[in-house]
Design a protein around this nucleic acid. Structure first.
Length: 471
RNA sequence: GGCGGCGUGGCCAAGUGGCUAAGGCGAAGGUCUGCAAAACCUUUAUUCGCCGGUUCGAAUCCGGCCGCCGCCUCCA
């Protein structure tokens, strides 16, 4: 029973080996709170959540830290444009982010550290790097990391320093003060574009560079060595490469033992961008009438290392798939009193072992879902033959709960809906319709059926009577 | 220019050397029903972009070609 993961650093699936057996210390690259999260961002957080959930399922004691970047070029620029203080500006998006996570049934991380609360830690790391000769101060007072001082630079991303395309995307005049264009900023000296955003520190008046916060916050909350670091593939270079350089050089420690990265999300086959009009935040989709549960289904339904093509039809498909799960769950109560049959237990055994093997093998959620659906189909077939029972319903419920903890999808109740339905009224309507049907008053019976449908209630007439569900 | 990924049925999506190529959606047929709907069951890829090669055996490995995509300084 071991978990295998694809480790970006080793470029291979490896057996996950925690520092302390049974413990997962994980750092997830979180959001820069300059705007609402879009579904591409949210895929990354669903991914982190899936890791957390599966390790818990396997009995790990998980300590999860996800940073909040609340100071960087964008947050400063946008808050100044809006003439709002940086803290007030980022706070609204931090709050929105937390709401999004909750809607998507993402378990809260144990710590959400803010970059701005860790400037002292960053300063200490930078001081150490200066002392050790890995960093230098430029003419304007900014401090840069000297990439050439770290021979392993490029190992994570597979890039060699010499190959980097110098000056392609960056106007070199912005970097006149750097010794080498590939060096990256640890500390940015204050300039007037920063307005009132600065810290007076031993390094001078200024603010941290982008990468240093993660080095500071991970070691502060998880220690210099921890088990797993995650992020989007776009973080591999330069962000995580730079983090490794900073952390290893300053802490004299290995830093993260494993690295996992989630692939990009595209929309309707194209890169998501505002100009193409295919840019979605969670809020956009909720407004269009999709549920957070449906969105989560789509986000976790493609293996995390594959590009995910997010489409409206995939949401429709998710809606139907989830309904199938819910219908299955609802069927348990109709199974007759009795013991579990051997056939039923065998189906359950097969499903759990397939599910576990899939998740243990680099978190193969699509395969785990397939195991769930195969199970549903075979049990439905057994139910037709009368081979399901109340005892089996209890057996299934137990496994279902465990599966739900892993996937966060199986229970509709986990997703707050807000709307309550007056079930007493629905029952009354159903009774009245039964009377009408007995009297063969089909017009009245159909009228009631239509009214309920109008109210979002779908009736299901079966041999055992009429049941209903919300649609 | 450098590095990397992908191309599987109408759509989505697993599988990366060997039992019948998972699963979901859709579609078709059936059961049920006053009619429906819903639900459930059954069926739905001799084939994995194309062409060669390696192998007893390839969707899976190798080479070439075609198409799509990502990264190469602040984007998950």
């Amino acid at each position: 029973m071991s978990i295998r993961v694809f480790d970006t650093y080793k470029r291979n699936k490896v057996e996950f080996r925690p520092l302390s057996p049974g413990q997962l210390k994980m750092y997830n690259c979180g959001p820069t709170v300059h705007d609402f999260a879009h579904i591409g961002n949210l895929r990354a957080y669903c991914f982190a959540d899936t890791i957390r959930r599966w390790f818990e399922n396997r009995g790990y004691d998980v300590l999860q830290v996800m940073n909040i970047t609340d100071v960087d070029d964008k947050t400063i620029r946008k808050s100044r444009e809006k003439e709002i203080g940086l803290g007030d500006y980022t706070e609204q998006y931090r709050k929105a982010f937390m709401e999004d996570l909750a809607s998507l049934n993402i378990l809260p991380a144990h710590v959400y550290p803010n970059a701005t609360d860790h400037v002292d830690d960053m300063v200490r790391i930078i001081e150490t790097l200066l002392e050790k000769g890995h960093a230098y101060r430029s003419e304007d007072g900014s401090i840069y990391f000297n990439v050439k001082s770290f021979p392993e630079y490029g190992n994570l991303s597979g890039k060699r320093i010499e190959d980097l395309r110098v000056g392609e995307r960056v106007r070199s005049d912005e970097y006149e003060s750097k010794d080498d264009v590939r060096d990256f900023a640890l500390w940015k000296a204050w300039d007037e574009d920063d307005g009132d955003v600065f810290w007076e520190t031993s390094l001078g008046k200024g603010r941290p560079g982008w990468h240093i916060e993660c080095s500071a916050m991970s070691s502060r909350h998880l220690g210099p060595v921890f088990d797993l670091h995650t992020g989007g593939v776009d973080n591999i270079f330069p962000h995580h490469e730079n983090e490794i350089a900073q952390s290893r050089c300053s802490l004299d420690a290995d830093f993260a033992r494993h690295w996992m990265h989630v692939e990009y999300l595209i929309v309707e086959g194209r890169k998501m961008s505002k100009s193409l009009g295919n840019f979605f935040t969670l809020r956009d989709l909720l407004e269009q009438g999709w549920s957070a549960r449906e969105i989560r289904y789509v986000l976790v339904g493609t293996h995390y290392r594959s590009q995910l093509n997010f489409t409206i039809s995939s949401l429709e498909s998710a809606r139907q798939s989830l309904a199938r799960m819910d219908d299955f769950k609802q069927s348990w109560s109709s199974w007759p009193e009795g013991e579990s049959t051997p056939e039923a237990l065998e189906a359950l055994e097969r499903a759990t072992s397939t599910f576990d093997a899939a998740m243990d093998d680099d978190l193969n959620v699509p395969q785990a879902l397939a195991a769930v659906f195969t199970f549903i189909r075979s049990v439905n077939a057994l139910a037709v033959e009368g081979k399901t029972s109340s005892q089996f319903a209890a057996d299934v419920r137990e496994v279902w709960t465990r599966w739900n903890h892993a996937l966060g999808l199986l229970e509709a109740d986990d997703f707050a809906t807000g709307e309550e339905i007056d079930s007493e009224w629905v029952e009354e309507q159903i009774l009245e319709r039964q009377e009408a049907r007995k009297a063969k008053d089909w017009a009245r019976a159909d009228e009631i059926r239509d009214e309920l449908l109008e109210a979002g209630i779908q009736l299901k007439d079966g041999p055992q009577g009429t049941t209903w569900k919300k649609i």
